[in-house]
Design a protein around this nucleic acid. Sequence first.
RNA 1: CGGGGCAUGGCGCAGUCUGGUAGCGCAUCUGCUUUGGGAGCAGAGGGUCGCAGGUUCGAAUCCUGCUGCCCCGACCA
Length: 571
Amino acid sequence: MRWSRYPITTVKEVPAEAEVISHQLMLRAGLIRRLAAGIYTWTPFGLRTLRKVEAIVREEMDRAGALEVLMPAVQPAELWQESGRWDKYGPELLRLNDRHQRSFVIGPTHEEVITDLARRELKSYRQLPVNFYQIQAKFRDEIRPRFGVMRGREFIMKDAYSFHADAASLEQGYAAMREAYVRMFTRMGLEFRVVRADTGAIGGSASEEFQVLADSGEDAIAVSDGPDQYAANIELAPTLPPATPRAAATLPLTKVPTPDQKTIADVAAFLALEPARLVKLLLVEGSEGGVVALALRGDHELNAVKAQKLAGVASPLRMATPETILAATGCEPGYLGPVGLKCPLYVDYAALALADFACGANEKGYHYTGVNWGRDLSEPQAVDVRNVVPGDPSPTGAGCLSIRRGIEVGHIFQLGTRYSESLRASVLDEAGKAVLMTMGCYGIGITRIVAAAIEQNHDAAGIVWPAPLAPFQVVLIPLNANRSERVHVKAESLYAELGAAGVEVLLDDRDARPGVKFADAELLGIPHRIVVAERGLDAGRLEYRQRRASANEEWPVDSAIETLLARIRAG
RNA sequence: CGGGGCAUGGCGCAGUCUGGUAGCGCAUCUGCUUUGGGAGCAGAGGGUCGCAGGUUCGAAUCCUGCUGCCCCGACCA
């Protein structure tokens, strides 16, 4: 490709809307342009990389035996009503009516459509297992689209759905997809982790996320440094009960005035105690009305996913309102504590391990110190409801957890019969009896991968593509070709030779100054750069530079192509 | 949905407080010079100042309503 034929310009200034580096670089390099909030056009350069990602995903899905299909973006409301998600999905589901006032949705995912196909086409266990996938645009009306294509509203997703006659087959299909995913992300040159995940609203029994590690990631993941390789989304990572028994009580229960000290930080400072010596009480709505109290150590955070799984707690989790709290405890938030509490109480392991702690006295302006479980109140029920923190032991006991940030680029689920049941998708088994198909579903955020790759691979000058994702492998830069016939001829012949050798080469044939060409080549992140100039040709040499390198190499002109091809093969 | 902010040429911004008919940088176009790290000089094109009302002799500027976008939070496959 000739750069002069590429009409979309790079920009020096960072658009005000771009917060994260990948978004800034994608706009500056001209990979994407925004059309509306969370909706982007992919330009020719950007599309080349997007297609690279797609191709790798497609190859690995095909290798794993999945069959590609293409489903409609617009789907009839009836299917969603049948599955029950018409009512459950909420405002993220974009709904619309056609001219006959029939309701449709723009697909945010395709469980309904694929299950409909499966129930029509699959009649016998002999047709199973099967895995259908597609690479296609989805629309989710996100409350807050941000970070460019990292959290867009319209985005391209590879979604796959497998159908099985039994759970054992699902296990196998799931394992095959997991393996395919590992291959894909490895091929893309990304640093990632497979982490255990919550199944969330989709439901199902097992689920793992593929997280690309990046500080700007929206997800927190807990990673063990031990040989267990444990990794989990922080939503899910369990904490262990303390290994050592609780210390004996040494202090008497004392009620102390703490006027206007409402937050943990305030109370800790006022009482001259570490926040870890305090117990805080959070009231959440109960599943049958009323409230449930959750006690945590002062320095710990509530984990909503864990909390909403507790018996008696409403799911999804809702914090109690100040009015409800006052009605349930006779006290306003800020002075709540477990002593003398009337509502059901769960206590986190870490809070239960404390002796001689401080907490609210359920009376405005007062806290207790020297509180002890079992002495000042009965032994409560111990649970795990907090987020893990760095230094916590790995749940396998084989290491220590640290917290990393990740960008979720893939998610695989064992769905079970959630959809085959509501949509009545069954096959006949060996005995001629109808059995519901067991399903798995497997997503990959294609567009998000491009952003994630940039988050992980950039420097001050711009993008540094992993070779498998680069829009071009080589950028060929003639300097002052308009004044030097020699340079012009040599650049053209190199361009032709590289093209003939099947190399994706970009010829910077613009009539621009050297600095402009160098800066653009670096911003665009092309892995290999060849400079053709009078200076080098006089010495019979070409100048080569790898995008990741900080210095040039001088190559003899005659063997340059050969050397370059070897470098490209080497990655 | 709550809180905050912004809306002026393709991009980034000033001008708004204190009303007087729109400006800077980048980008684009022309010419000359320049040519190994985002050139210089000279010139040019391009803006119903988000939309609709209102106040005023006069509104980018003041008032009212609306819309779009951004940020924080809650929410969420």
